[in-house]
Design a protein around this nucleic acid. Structure first.
Length: 305
DNA sequence: TTTACTGT
């Protein structure tokens, strides 16, 4: 029983109250840990581009990028369309706003000729020099160069996995206890779900969330690292749109703090309403999806969209 | 397995 296992793990960790059957309520739930920012009314999105060049080459017919973005663009700021993922870049923080991936069971098939060890972290020269990070920013910072679009999701070609190592696809992440552990668990969950569906779309990105300080006011505060002052996000989100059967969709929205998370905490502790990510991120996720086709949200029928 | 660092 999933709920029972979750309850045991959490009470062992936190000893706190837990509401089964409603929404997640425990010490690690972002719902309890965060002071949400003031509501801002969303503006309608401009229409989606119909043809986007992939890898610098014009493609006849539907491009890979338009497949990846078929459920809508969260935004259009400094877009980059790579071979197997699409990224929007934030010049102020020197990391992405979001990245979007489209995964299918056959795209995850193991190809031994594609080797992560051949990849190198490198600056994204397509960004203006003022706004790009480099490896020295991360060196000695104490933070990992954490992938947003995970390398393990793009093993179809060497070029595709190479492109995930561009620093535009990295954010400073706590290494041990986060990137190499709980966040990695979430990435593995995505691949596991991919094997049990027809299409999976995943949007991932950093967030900078307000926190109450000693004077009782809310502040957005984040560290910056290196000479380029790369922002260290306070949180990361990952939103999954799972096409379980053709035309039948499920959504899972995760929000994790960029800090050491004990192994005992299940990833389900980090499920949040999608609106929470959208309000703080300043964008809408999977906006073009017909909500009538949505069967499950965060594991439950009947909404919590 | 996948995630990545520091020290050599």
């Amino acid at each position: 029983m999933r709920a029972a296992a979750k309850l045991t793990g959490l009470t062992a960790l936190a000893g706190g109250s837990f509401l089964v059957g409603t929404q997640v309520s425990n010490d690690w739930s972002p719902l309890n840990r965060l002071q949400s920012a003031t509501a801002v009314a969303p503006a309608p999105m401009p229409p989606m581009p119909t043809a986007v060049p992939v890898g610098g080459k014009e493609i006849i017919g539907p491009s890979r990028a338009s497949q990846i973005m078929v459920h809508g663009f969260p935004g259009f700021d400094n877009l980059r369309t790579f071979e197997d993922f699409v990224l929007s870049y934030d010049r102020r923080t020197k990391t992405a706003h979001w990245v979007c991936e489209h995964l299918t069971p056959d795209r995850l098939e193991y190809d031994p000729s594609v080797d992560r060890a051949k990849c190198a972290f490198r600056s994204d020269e397509s960004m203006h020099a003022y706004f790009r990070s480099d490896n020295t920013d991360y060196k000695g910072s104490g933070y990992d160069r954490g992938h947003l679009a995970a390398a393990g999701n793009h093993r179809r070609t060497q070029n595709a996995v190479d492109q995930t190592f561009l620093l535009s696809n990295m954010s400073p992440q706590v290494g041990k206890g986060f990137n190499r552990d709980k966040w990695n668990d979430l990435e593995k969950h995505v691949r596991k779900q991919t094997k049990k569906c027809v299409n999976l779309y995943v949007i991932t990105g950093p967030l900078y969330l307000a926190k109450k300080e000693g004077d009782g006011n809310l502040y957005v505060k984040y560290k910056v690292i290196g000479k380029n002052q790369v922002a260290v996000p306070t949180h990361f989100f990952k939103s999954l749109l799972i096409e379980r059967r053709p035309g039948e969709f499920e959504v899972e929205n995760y929000l994790m703090p960029n800090e050491v998370i004990p192994d005992s905490v299940p990833i389900s502790s980090f499920l949040v309403p999608q609106e929470m990510i959208e309000r703080s991120g300043g964008f809408l996720l999977f906006e073009k999806l017909d909500k009538k086709k949505l069967k499950l949200v965060n594991g439950k029928a009947g909404g919590w969209w």
